[in-house]
Design a binder for these strands. Structure first.
Length: 278
DNA sequence: CCAGTCAAGCAGCTCC
DNA sequence: GGAGCTGCTTGACTGG
């Protein structure tokens, strides 16, 4: 649905050209940002985890991969984290890793995504503190998920299993990710449509105002025009040769014409039947 | 599955 | 420089 579609009322008067408003750009940018945003690499360690390096980079097939140490605790079997342990170590990769992103994109396109996460790591985490820290997906995981989402916004159970295995996540996590992704895509779409409707409303209001002004201007000259301009056109007048009265085409009221013509008038419409005018 | 919600984690900013 | 605050993103849960 486009702005033009929304505003298409069939009206042809006036110009309703729609400039590309900066706000549109902002919105678009926002949308793009949403669509293309690559989640930051943020890993949360449970409080009992050692303070080991959590963003260990490993080179696999020339691609930098991030080792996710603390994650993938079964979301289905754990409750919300209310851990107050503040000893978790967060190391966030700074933005601007464009080359790395390109590398990841290349790898993604070749459908060869190697997640260097060992089951052992997960086991260690699951044996950690009872309360897990919130998982942050790695870039690679997010890329793959985004890629799959672009293909299909939903997954069947088998696809979910395969994807979960590929990303070394719990199927429930993949399921939740897709649910959230759908919901947030829909929300963004709704916002965009709302914005379009608002702009459309503004445009139609302006158009309505403009047309009303136009009507006012068209009506205005009738009141101020010279008297002669208010007379009916002479060519439409018909004189009855018998009663010698002018008929303006009013039928029954023709005898009550406002403009009686003297009997010496030579107005005569030869195309009209003489008696028809009376 | 969806809508609503919670809460962790992060960036950006201010203040000292 | 870092503590504190705020707003945003996002993983996860809950109820329908």
């Amino acid at each position: 649905m486009t702005f033009q579609d929304l505003c298409n009322t069939g009206l042809t008067l006036g110009s309703t050209s729609l400039d590309h408003h900066p706000q549109d750009q902002h919105k678009t940018k926002s949308l793009l940002k949403f669509d293309r945003e690559t989640p930051s690499l943020t890993l949360g360690l449970s409080s009992s985890s050692s303070l080991e390096e959590i963003n260990q980079h490993q080179v696999s097939n020339g691609v930098l991969l991030h080792r996710q140490v603390s994650n993938s605790v079964s979301a289905a079997t754990t409750t919300s984290s209310h851990s107050n342990n503040s000893s978790s170590v967060i190391k966030r990769e700074k933005d601007g890793g464009g080359e790395e992103v390109e590398e990841v994109e290349r790898e993604r396109s070749s459908k060869v995504v190697m997640m260097m996460i060992s089951d052992h790591d997960q086991d260690l985490d699951q044996e950690g503190s009872g309360a897990r820290k919130k998982l942050r997906l790695t870039k690679e995981q997010s890329f793959v998920l985004e890629d799959r989402f672009r293909e299909h916004s939903s997954l069947n159970p088998k696809q979910k299993q395969v994807l979960a295995k590929q990303l070394n996540l719990q199927p429930r996590q993949v399921e939740v990710w897709f649910q959230n992704r759908r919901a947030r895509t829909k929300l963004k779409q709704t916002e965009v449509e709302c914005d379009l409707l608002r702009k459309c409303c503004e445009t139609l209001t302006d158009e309505n105002k403009r047309l009303r002004n136009e009507i006012q201007e068209l009506k205005a000259p009738k009141k101020t025009a010279p008297f002669y301009m208010q007379l009916p056109a002479i060519a439409t007048l018909t004189m009855c040769p018998s009663c010698q009265q002018i008929d303006s085409g009013g039928g029954e009221n023709s005898s009550k014409s406002l403009f009686p013509v003297s009997s010496k008038s030579h107005f005569y419409n030869s195309f009209s039947h003489p008696s028809a005018a009376c």
